[in-house]
Design a protein around this nucleic acid. Sequence first.
RNA 1: GGUGGGUUGGCCGAGAGGCGAGGCAAGGGACUGCAAAUCCCUCUACACCGGUUCAAAUCCGGUACCCACCUCCA
Length: 464
Amino acid sequence: MALSLYDTSARTQREFVSIEPGKTGIYLCGATVQAPPHVGHIRSGVAFDVLRRWLIARGYDVTFIRNVTDIDDKIINNGKAQAIPYWLVAMNNERAFTDAYNVLGCLPPTYEPRATGHITEMVTIMQRLIEAGHAYQLNGDVYFDVKSFTKYGNLSGQKPDDMVSSADSEAMGKRDPRDFAMWKSVKPGEPSWPTPFGDGRPGWHIECSAMAHKYLGANFDIHGGGLDLIFPHHENEIAQSQAAGDGFANYWMHNAWVTTAGEKMSKSLGNSLLVSEVVKRIRPVDLRYYLVSVHYRSMLEYSDASVQEAGQAFRRIEGFIARAQEFLGAQAATVEELRPQQFDDAMDDDLSVAQGCAVIHETIRAGNAALTAQNSSDVAAAYGAVLGMLDVLGLHPRDWPKSTGGDDQTTEVIDGLVHALLEQRQDARARKDFEAADAIRDGLDAMGIRIEDTPQGARWTLEQ
RNA sequence: GGUGGGUUGGCCGAGAGGCGAGGCAAGGGACUGCAAAUCCCUCUACACCGGUUCAAAUCCGGUACCCACCUCCA
């Protein structure tokens, strides 16, 4: 089965064929760094991280560009409100985004360009557009002439004439209310850059056209982002880039958003859903498993309870891995990570991760049974398969240090103490003093240390 | 007004004409001194009304409710 991906512009799934065999370029609209990220923002990062990992698994050399838009109205206004420069607002939030991507195990992008570093490239595009008659200057602003681009509205399926005009569309002198500003003339107290059109700053949209061109070329494979970017952001990017003569993106992919209480998660919801906060009450790996296990185009109704339930399922996976490692011993390190065909087929089908997870769980059931039967070749096969699949989802245990709550040294000390107690308990059990044995177990349990008896002796784990 | 999406069992979530994904929870069983873990079994579904078909959760028509985009948004 060949990889096929849902292409928003085609409104259907299409077989993925890269421009250059064995290589592919992805441009992901990253953050407009006006506030720290909440769970919804990071879903996008995680979804496209899985896409990237899958392309890598399929043998592609992936160039992954994720931009940072570090200049816009809100960033400037937030700076004014906090009495700090706009660039500090941008920097602080960019760091918060980086932390969030890292804590959730997203691979760092190949390159992460910032809008303000690409004014020159923006000017070039705008000049090309003006020369081609697709843009015009007006009072120091530069507008894109929507009517001059007949394909305007194709991506979002909007007919320009049916669109509700924005409130300020009666604005002075624009040729059409839908014409959008690529360049905004300088206002007092606001940052600006000198250009042939006068001092000013970029509008929204133009930075992505400029940066995608610079790092991926005039024509590249995949452009991604959240559903809500389809219009106007991506529609406008297409208009700018294609009117300027670029082929631009061959595939458009959009992730659905995260909702809370049935509504889209927005920046006004307060702090409790900031990634930095959520991660204090939920293991990051559980959050990643939760975000990853739902198809990227399905809406995700967020609640802590749902994540915890997902975490329960993930713990089953972790439990198997731990037991398999214990059982296999040194052999574990040499097991080949071979993914089941069913899993690959699911991923090839527009990244059907939910089905992939079903394969993981089925493999684990077989692995657990093999463990009970002490069948080491079957255990090894299941273990390798599970690791291979987890790797594609960015959930490989090697990337997630065990959260035992301490460093190795502390863990060693705890291990020693727990084992001393377990020996006492074993003595009590041997003389059938179950009351004493259970008292030890209950005592450990109260401290968050879970005891499981196995044929090889008792095993302890920290409650998570 | 225009456009797009959704409604699946106690819950989370796949699927997209015919063998009931998977997980969580629940109940029963095996194992265990007991527990835990594990395995086996069981239960509960496709918003509503019509239609097409030998066969519909899946296709067609309609209804209801929900959400989003068209203004900043992952």
